[in-house]
């Protein structure tokens, strides 16, 4: 079952900003990464799903229901952590969490104390007096206290120290084991790589690709670095599957995907002094998606 179904979701504000034709599905029980640089449209997509803003065209189905028409009903089962957390002045953490819980028709007090204990959050402090990281924790507890079926996180880790991040990830994994679906938006690849099953890559308001993390990291991408006696001529590695070619004196490096034998054949023609073949990290693959996009733009008439 799809928990989230985006169909050609488009939201335009003015001319430049917004998202165009975003379509992807998130299945039940999945941890789905939503990744792209700042300003790519991640928050816009999420806010449209929550009907804080309305789509210009296309639609978002959450739990199979239209996100605009059934907004209040859908939100009963959504926990949302906004990227920037701001709360009402003069409220104690305890009061805010109680207020948040009062919107759901269940008793959340046990869950509140459990979560805040886990995250080391002082319930009796005023929210105004909290540090940014501690405010973020309030946001996390606020988003999880009603045990939602879908958790939407917009840049959740900013402001959390590494230890707390780990606790938070453990918490999410625990929720996920219970069957909770998680949409995790971030511009930090390593955390998405750590957490997610699949990932949607968004750039300048358009969806670049939806891919399994495992596929992204699959062995068809290799980073080659070689040292030769004589500098390699620029045209030498002009072949399918070679990207990001860099020649610096004796050192040549590139990213390769495709049949490993054909590149090895090429290598035998060179007099090598050293050779490294490595697994590229996601960051590199990701950048490569972006660069490929740009190349396409260059070549389009």
């Amino acid at each position: 079952m799809n928990v989230i179904e985006l169909k050609n979701l488009t939201k335009m504000y003015g001319k430049s900003r917004g998202i165009r034709n975003i379509s992807f599905n998130v299945e039940e029980g999945e941890i789905f990464g939503f990744i792209g640089p700042n300003g790519a449209g991640k928050s816009t997509t999420i806010r449209t799903m929550l009907s804080l803003i309305y789509p210009t065209s296309g639609s978002a189905l959450i739990f199979g229901k239209d996100s605009v028409k059934f907004a209040p009903e859908i939100k009963r089962e959504i926990g949302y952590l906004p990227s920037e957390v701001f709360y009402y002045d003069n409220m104690k953490v305890k009061d805010l969490l109680k207020y948040s819980a009062s919107f759901y028709k269940k008793d959340c007090s046990h869950r509140i104390s459990q979560l805040s204990k886990m995250l080391d959050l002082d319930l009796n402090k005023k929210i105004d007096d909290l540090s940014f990281g501690n405010k973020k924790k309030v946001g996390i507890v606020q988003g999880l206290l009603h045990e939602p079926k879908l958790i939407i996180l917009d840049e959740p880790t900013s402001g959390l120290d590494p230890l707390m991040q780990q606790k938070f990830f453990d918490l999410l994994k625990e929720e996920n084991k219970k069957g909770t679906t998680i949409l995790f938006s971030s511009h930090i690849l390593s955390e998405v790589q750590k957490m997610c099953d699949r990932v949607a890559i968004i750039k300048e308001g358009e969806l670049v690709k939806v891919e399994k993390i495992s596929t992204l990291k699959e062995n068809n991408h290799k980073r080659f670095k070689l040292e030769t006696k004589m500098p390699v001529s620029q045209g030498f590695f002009q072949m399918d599957g070679v990207q990001n070619l860099e020649v610096k004196d004796q050192i040549t490096s590139f990213l390769y995907s495709g049949n490993i034998n054909s590149v090895l054949e090429k290598l035998t023609q060179l007099e090598l002094t050293n050779l490294w073949i490595e697994e590229p990290d996601l960051e590199e693959i990701f950048l490569h998606y972006y660069e490929k996009e740009n190349e396409d733009e260059y070549f389009s008439p």
């Binding site: 209040p72 009903e73 939100k75 959504i78 701001f86 709360y87 002045d89 606020q142």
Partner: peptide, 11 residues
């Protein structure tokens, strides 16, 4: 006060 995201994400 930027609390709209909090309130509007409630049911």
């Amino acid at each position: 006060g930027k609390t709209a995201e909090f309130l509007l994400s409630k049911p």
